[in-house]
Design a protein around this nucleic acid. Structure first.
Lengths: 221, 221
DNA sequence: CGAAAGATTGACTGAGTTCAACTGAAGTGG
DNA sequence: CCACTTCAGTTGAACTCAGTCAATCTTTCG
């Protein structure tokens, strides 16, 4: 834990900030290393600040009555999580947990809001981010309602490819299933088919996409 | 069509505005009466302004490949639709169509943005609105992924009860199905069961909720 | 009044869930 | 370092919820 410099530069949402306000945030952040499977925040509690991921992956999810997680988003380096609840003035509707070891900078609400009020371009960036998010979620609703499980698995693999970039996709089968919105067993069965069709390679829990175009066909676009 | 006064007072999002900026919007709005089934905007096109509903209901939806609509929201008197795309600087991801005869005030982007920049409280209200929307959509994703069709129909009926208030719910079976994310036939069958269990009354296409608590049980809360 | 659209019902089918058993990998403590 | 536990991953089989198709009935509206 501690204060360190020049970590927020990589944060997408802060790209539009001038040096002055960026360094204000830099000076007021608290950076911390998180082990795997550590919660950043839990649905129902109230936000105290925002989390900027500088290294690692975080799952953002919500629990159903049965205790089953629905993953809404996998956040990665350069992403900010937990800012939505700040502006809706509600408790968190979602929880966030690290998927691997992470470096995360925490910025207190008061400091973040201070910069927002002084720097309209940050507000603009936040508004744009939340607007995009809301639009993507509408599309996700449609996907859930209209696509088969097979198509949804293909879609999620394509989304994850973007997030994991060069690296193989590295999620438990259960997390994968909870992102797709299906049973773990179904996920495993369909992954096996994709492997047999040479769309992916499987090394233990790691998945490598071999044929992005083929996968897009599976996704039904 | 034409200009008329004091219509925007009923718009929830403008409640925080002072008289001065409200009257600016009043003076720059264009009010229009829309017949049933008229599109306000279509996904893929670019926003030119926002739509304030002063009378009537509007469905906000997106089309799947098969041509099936997924309804994301039913907007009503006092709601503003079509502002999300303005801030994400993208084309519309959703379409909006009137469900009945509507009175709708249109405010051009330039006028809306002008007020936003001059009146931070409007920006605050917009940000809050979009944040809430995004949170609700995350919950909707979970509902789609984890709830049975029967539960989802109950949930949608409860949502619609809030929107239609005193009036009976008045949607086609197809629209209802497209909100729930299911087939029309399934919707009809389950509505019949709810009627037999005396949770609802059915008069043609109109539905009256008799037993809100019973319906909440069906919704699984 | 007649046509067209929307609502309803029945029969059938199949995608995906659930349950149960088994395998393999990864820790963990003696 | 190995035996033991534990958890993730995998496979099989049975079952069921919900979708599809087709026919019919009802309402709406020109």
């Amino acid at each position: 834990m501690g204060i360190s410099v020049n970590q927020l530069e990589t944060v997408e949402m802060f790209k539009t900030l001038d040096i002055e306000s960026l360094s204000f945030l830099e000076n007021n952040k608290v950076c911390q290393s998180f082990k795997k499977n550590k919660p950043l925040f839990v649905e129902g509690s109230y936000p105290t600040g925002v989390f900027c991921i500088t290294k690692g992956k975080v799952k953002v999810f919500t629990l159903g009555e049965s205790g089953k997680e629905q993953i809404i988003r996998i956040a990665s380096d350069g992403d900010v999580v937990g800012f939505r609840a700040m502006f809706s003035e509600e408790p968190y509707k979602l929880s966030a947990t690290t998927l691997e070891e992470c470096n995360i900078c925490f910025i207190k609400i008061s400091h973040f809001m201070e910069q927002i009020h002084e720097h309209p371009e940050l507000l603009q960036a936040v508004l744009k981010e939340i607007s995009k998010e809301s639009g993507e979620r509408a599309m996700f609703i449609k996907t859930m309602a209209q696509k088969t499980v097979r198509e949804r698995i293909a879609i999620v693999l394509l989304v994850l490819e973007d997030i994991y970039k060069e690296d193989p996709i590295n999620l438990s089968r259960e997390d994968l299933a909870n992102f797709v919105g299906t049973a773990t067993e179904t996920t495993i069965r369909i992954l096996k088919e994709f492997k047999e069709d040479e769309l992916i390679e499987i090394n233990g829990r790691k998945i490598i996409l071999n044929d992005t175009n083929g996968m897009k066909k599976e996704a039904g676009y």
